[in-house]
Nucleic acid binder design. Structure first.
Length: 785
DNA sequence: CAGTGAGCGAGCTTCCGCTTGACTT
């Protein structure tokens, strides 16, 4: 190394986890410090194989992850020439482990290494951290090793059982399997729910020329009750019996954590969990917000001062109320701040629509968290009537001081109907007579529990202490990728309901219709998800227990306190667990959720439904019999639990030979993309109105011919010497196609006159040239604040 | 784009948690 290079080499190397963080901290520390990042974990167990030597006290086999080799090499080089290496990874279990892996992999010595921690990225916090270095906390590292290895043992011992017993490439794990369980159980609750009708009675009254609504204090069960009450109320007198005023307050919600941000972005902006994280990541990288993977609701003093100034400036002193919030979730490790804007004076940012909306949400939530309570005056009016004992209740809310509501209110998870009758109430006196405008008794229906959305599942997982801010989004994607869960939007069905109305002296009734049971982006379990869940639940009760994570977390804490050896904890868990793995494996029986549906009347053979290698299917005939059984896949809209013998027999009718054309057989079936006709190796979609069960040879031929004519119309040129290359007319103009890939044709060329050579050259060139990024919108750089 | 499915047995699949890019129709 040259002397010149040595001279500019910094004395200190400080390593953090995130590159964006490194940039910020480098600015705070000045030229004596080089700040780099590890970009997360650098070491892990190998992907292939268990990577844990169980016989030798769970000795882990750590390897540098392939995508981190370069980073490690670079850090190693810098570490060699530095006088002091500062390990500034996050102050939590995982951060401590990263520091420990860095120490080992970079070949550091205790003498030249210092471990520092901070909870917020502010100049004073970093400088303070540098003043108080410590050593790596091996107990905390051991707690991480216990966590890591337990997860590996569970995941890598359970998954292969599923491959063998149910179908290949499935997976199980401490987090994902419980997430699936929640969804399966919720679905069963919804399906078992018996909806009960009732009548909700709402009167409209007038006092001092103001019309307001009041609800009967109890629900009525039957139609007779509803109609009977209204008839009884004909000509009755309505009187204010009492009026009660109660002042109350409402406080703002805590600043955002990962989980609450995901929930609010889902409710207010309809973002998926992954989308929220993607957008937040880009805001973070640009320096607009603090770190987005956090379980802390804490704000730095700098941030509290910042919000205070902003609130004072925008709304005045009266609205300022600084507060500190306490974390509710039990597993929280609080290595970071809450998610907040880095500069409160920036009310709006430049960026994509999604970025500006998410930033706006974060800004408002943070600002509101440091504002005064809203003061609300609640009024409850009780109305009695002369025809009987039944009373009506009107509730009104008057906001006497808006406080934080000026900026932000948290949303609820939406529920069907159930809206409250609230509004402005007139000023009345006790015993004041009221004019009755009309009274409605509307039929309503009790609601089943709500299916999970991505965000409400995250909320539930967090409440159970399962998963971490960095894994909520990936977990949701995993259970969908494995085919355990589907995110679906379903149209509802029509339902009739009755409304009785008392107006003047008449009681009338009408029947109306409404849509019920519609679902938007809800999580549904698949057949595979249900079968896997039931299998795991029947053999691995402990892992599937909603409290399993909470229990092991308690033990990890004891390890971190230095009061329990991590290998002892693991061995106590592993021996009984592994025993069940072995006995389950030894049992030859498959666990494909097989169910006998009945007997085929034509052949007398048994018809089963079960999970096959490619998903749910029906089977006719036993696998042990001489004759090979017949199989057919379930359709996308069919479920194992509700499949009948009749539906199963129908599935065996396809594919159906409908005739021949040009000496080749034509058959009709239903595929992934709907009904089709197969002719030789070619597929032809059945146009709407044709049924694969009844379509005739004649229609089949017509469909094939029509498709051929379309093909010809689309074709501009085919080359005799190389029929693989074609020039076609597409949606966006002419293009070339070869090997199922499409290539563009320059606008100045006549597609009908291109030669084969010219085409080949253009294809080669496009293959070589790197593709341009699309959908990229340049953003204005934010001015330094 | 749309196929498959037992059994035989080769070899493949898989966890959670920490972090970012490099990629498309």
């Amino acid at each position: 190394m040259s002397a010149h290079l040595m001279a500019i080499m910094a004395k200190n190397l400080l390593i953090v986890e995130s590159p964006a963080k490194a940039k910020t901290i480098e600015k705070y520390l000045g030229k004596d410090f080089t700040v780099r990042s590890s970009v997360g974990h650098i070491c892990d167990l190998p992907e292939k194989g268990l990577g844990v030597d169980i016989k030798h006290n769970f000795k882990p086999d750590y390897v540098v992850s392939t995508d981190k080799k370069q980073i490690v090499a670079e850090l190693k080089k810098l570490a060699k020439t530095a006088e002091t290496v500062w390990l500034a990874t996050d102050e939590d279990r995982e951060g401590e482990a990263i520091a420990w892996h860095l120490y080992n992999e970079l070949g550091l010595t205790a003498k030249k290494t210092k471990r520092v921690v901070y909870h917020e990225i502010t100049k004073s916090a970093i400088e303070d951290a540098i003043k108080h270095p410590r050593e790596i906390n091996k107990d905390l590292v051991d707690a991480q090793q216990a966590r890591r290895i337990l997860d590996r043992l569970v995941g890598y011992e359970l998954s292969p059982i599923l491959w063998k017993k149910i179908k290949p490439a499935l997976s199980a794990g401490r987090v994902q399997s419980v997430a699936v369980r929640l969804i399966v159980e919720r679905e069963r609750e919804v399906n078992a729910f018996l909806t009960a009708p009732y009548y909700k009675v709402v009167g409209q009254f007038i006092a001092n020329n103001i019309k307001f609504k009041a609800e009967l204090e109890k629900r009525l069960i039957s139609e007779q009750d509803a109609e009977g009450l209204l008839k009884k109320l004909v000509g009755a007198e309505f009187t204010v019996k009492s009026q009660e005023k109660k002042p109350s307050r409402r406080s703002p919600s805590a600043p955002f954590t990962t989980s609450t941000l995901q929930q609010e972005a889902s409710r207010k902006l309809s973002f998926s969990v992954a989308q929220t994280m993607r957008v937040a990541q880009s805001l973070y990288e640009r320096g607009d917000i603090t770190y987005m993977r956090t379980d802390s609701v804490n704000l730095s003093q700098f941030a509290i001062d910042g919000t205070k100034d902003e609130v004072k400036k925008l709304y005045g002193d009266k609205y300022v109320h600084t507060r500190t919030y306490k974390t509710k979730s039990s597993g929280a490790q609080e290595a970071h701040e809450a998610i907040r804007p880095t500069n409160f004076a920036v009310k709006e940012i430049e960026g994509t629509d999604q970025e500006t909306r998410l930033y706006d949400l974060i800004w408002k939530r943070t600002i509101a968290s440091q504002m005064s309570d809203a003061e609300i005056e609640k009024t409850v009016l009780t109305i009695s009537q002369s025809a009987g004992e039944e009373k009506f209740i009107a509730t009104g809310e008057v906001i006497s001081f808006d406080g934080f509501l000026k900026v932000y209110t948290e949303s609820d998870d939406e529920t069907e109907d159930e809206e409250k009758e609230e509004g402005t109430l007139p000023m009345v006196k006790e015993n004041q007579k009221l004019e009755m405008a009309e009274i409605n008794a509307m039929q309503r229906f009790t609601l089943p529990p709500a299916r999970y959305t991505e965000a409400s599942l995250v909320k539930k997982l967090e409440a159970l202490g399962i998963g971490r801010p960095s894994t909520y989004a990936p977990t949701i994607s995993t259970v969908q990728k494995r085919g355990y869960v589907l995110k679906e939007t379903k149209e509802g069905v029509e339902r009739k309901y009755k409304v009785f109305t008392l107006k003047g002296k008449d009681v009338t009734s009408v029947t109306k219709t409404e849509i019920t049971g519609a679902e938007k982006s809800k999580l549904f379990p698949t057949d595979v998800g249900i079968v896997v869940n039931d299998f795991l639940l029947s053999h691995f009760q402990e892992i599937m227990d909603y409290n399993f994570t909470a229990h092991v977390e308690e033990e990890f804490d004891i390890i971190a306190d230095g009061k329990l050896e991590w290998t002892k904890m693991l061995s106590k868990f592993y021996s009984p667990f592994h025993k069940i793995v072995e006995t389950t494996n030894a049992n030859k029986e498959r666990a494909a959720g097989e169910k006998l549906l009945g007997v085929d009347p034509k052949t007398g053979k048994n018809v089963y439904v079960k999970i096959g290698r490619y998903g749910p299917m029906v089977q006719m005939g036993a696998t042990e019999s001489e004759e090979k059984p017949r199989f057919a896949k379930l359709r996308a809209d069919q479920h194992m639990e509700s499949l009948t013998l009749e539906m199963a027999l129908n599935l065996f009718l396809l594919p159906r030979v409908i005739g021949t054309f040009e000496d080749q057989e034509m058959s009709a079936a239903i595929g992934r993309f709907g009904p089709y006709i197969k002719h030789g190796a070619a597929f032809y979609s059945l146009p709407a109105g044709n049924d694969p069960y009844t379509v005739t040879e004649e229609t089949g031929i017509e469909i094939i011919k029509a498709k051929r004519i379309k093909e010809i119309e689309k074709t501009i040129q085919v080359f005799k010497h190389d029929p693989e290359i074609k020039i076609l007319k597409g949606q966006y103009g002419p293009y070339m196609t070869m090997d199922k890939k499409n290539y563009k044709i320059p606008k100045d060329k006549d597609p009908a006159k291109l030669t084969l050579e010219e085409c080949l050259v253009m294809i080669e060139e496009e293959k070589k040239s790197p593709r341009k990024k699309r959908g990229f919108t340049p953003r204005k750089k934010k001015t330094e604040s």
